[in-house]
Amino acid sequence: MKIFGNAVIVSILSMGVIFLVLSVLICTIKILVHFMPYQAPAAPPAFSPARSTPGGGAGAPGGSAVGEHIAAITGALSAHLGKNPDQIHISSVKPV
């Protein structure tokens, strides 16, 4: 009977130690996460917002080639959607 009592004591003591150790770990993790929060990696460099200027890239910053691409995309979209090109605003173009 005594050894049974000892087993119960060991069990209670051990469970207490496990919860204590893991609780200390929980607090430590929370502190770490609080002081070192996740920061999303910087987005790949995107082209600056550009006003659509169909028919030429003069108004687009960043060079005429980009401007031409934006103009072509704007033209295609406006034709497809049946909208005025001025109503379409392309904010960035990401190469795939």
Partner: peptide
């Protein structure tokens, strides 16, 4: 991290 407690409870 609270799930660490579940890892402790399973030691039951």
């Amino acid at each position: 991290p609270i799930t660490l407690l579940l890892g402790a409870a399973a030691q039951f």
